[in-house]
Design a protein around this nucleic acid. Structure first.
Lengths: 135, 135
DNA sequence: AATCTGAGTTTGTATTTTGAACTCAGGTAG
DNA sequence: CTACCTGAGTTCAAAATACAAACTCAGATT
C-alpha cells in the first residue's frame, strides 16, 4: 500500500484522477478546471502515464491536427471504488457545504454505496476488517 | 471531494493514517516506521487533528509522565473503507512485489472485500457507478 | 503573412521539505 | 543534588518542489 500511497499521495494527482473519472481527458480542460500550473500538470500526467494509471491516446477532431488524450487504463479504472469510497467519506464527514454528491447507477439512477462484504456479498461492518498478510 | 483531496492529498498524510489504522499512535513510533522528518510529521499530525481526523488523547504508562497519543476519531475511522479499497487496488494493480495483504474479518478470519452495492446490499459492477448531484 | 490554439517547455522566484542540532519536562541512577 | 535518558517536539540552513509568467512549436485559419 505504500506504493499506492506513493502514486496517489499528491494534491494534484487526486484531482487529476477525479477529472479523468468525470471524463475530462484534455490537457487544457484539466488545466482550466483545476487551475493547476502547466509544469505541474505535465509532470503529474506523465507520472500517471508511466505508472500505468493513465494512457495517452491520440485523437483527432475534424479539421484539426492529431492530439493526445489522457484516459484511464484498466488499472486506473480500478481506482473507481477507492474514489467512490473517498467521495462517500467526504460527503459524510467533511461536509464543507460543498455540493452534496452521491453515487448512483448510471442507467437506472438507483442509489449505490461502497460497502465491505464477505465472500458471499453480504455486507459486514468495516470495524470488523483487519489487514492480513496472506500466504 | 476536493475538500477530501485537500486533506488526504499528501504523501505523508496517507502513510500516517495507515499507521493509525494499524494502531500505531505514538509520535516516535510513527517517526521510526515512516522515517519521516520530525517537523513534517509534527505538521501533518497537527493538521489531521485540526481537521478532526485524528485526536490527541493523553495517556500514561506506569512510572512515566503523561504523553499524547494520536488516535482516529469517528470521522477518521470512517476512512477505513477508502483505505481498504486502496489497499485492494494496490494489491491488484501495483503488485510491486510488496507483501501481499488482504482484508479479513478480524474475528473469524473470513476474507472480505470492498464492493459497490445497491440499496439492498446486492453487489453492482463499479463501471455502472456515476457521481450524481443529489437534491 | 499574420494570427490562433492546444499542448507543452523554460526560467527565475517563492514555498515546502528535509536532516541535523537543539530544547524541554519529567524520570532514573549514582 | 548532579548527570544522564527518553519522548515529543522546535529551530534553522540547505535542498528540492511548486509556481506564474513568458516562450516555443506545429498545424489550421484569416
Amino acid at each position: 500500500m505504500a506504493l499506492a500511497a506513493g502514486i496517489l499521495g499528491d494534491r494534484w494527482t487526486l484531482l487529476i484522477l477525479r477529472e479523468a473519472f468525470y471524463g475530462v481527458c484534455r490537457y487544457d480542460d484539466m488545466r482550466e478546471d483545476l487551475k493547476a500550473p502547466r509544469s505541474t500538470l505535465t509532470d503529474r500526467l506523465n507520472s500517471l502515464v508511466s505508472r500505468g494509471v493513465l494512457e495517452k491516446r491520440p485523437y483527432q477532431e475534424t479539421g484539426d491536427r492529431v492530439r493526445q488524450a489522457y484516459v484511464l487504463t484498466e488499472a486506473g479504472r480500478g481506482l473507481a471504488l477507492t474514489f467512490l469510497a473517498l467521495a462517500q467519506w467526504g460527503e459524510a464527514h467533511v461536509t464543507g457545504g460543498a455540493a452534496p454528491v452521491g453515487v448512483a447507477d448510471r442507467e437506472t439512477g438507483a442509489p449505490l454505496r461502497v460497502a465491505l462484504v464477505d465472500a458471499e456479498g453480504v455486507p459486514v461492518d468495516p470495524a470488523r476488517a483487519a489487514l492480513r498478510l496472506r500466504g
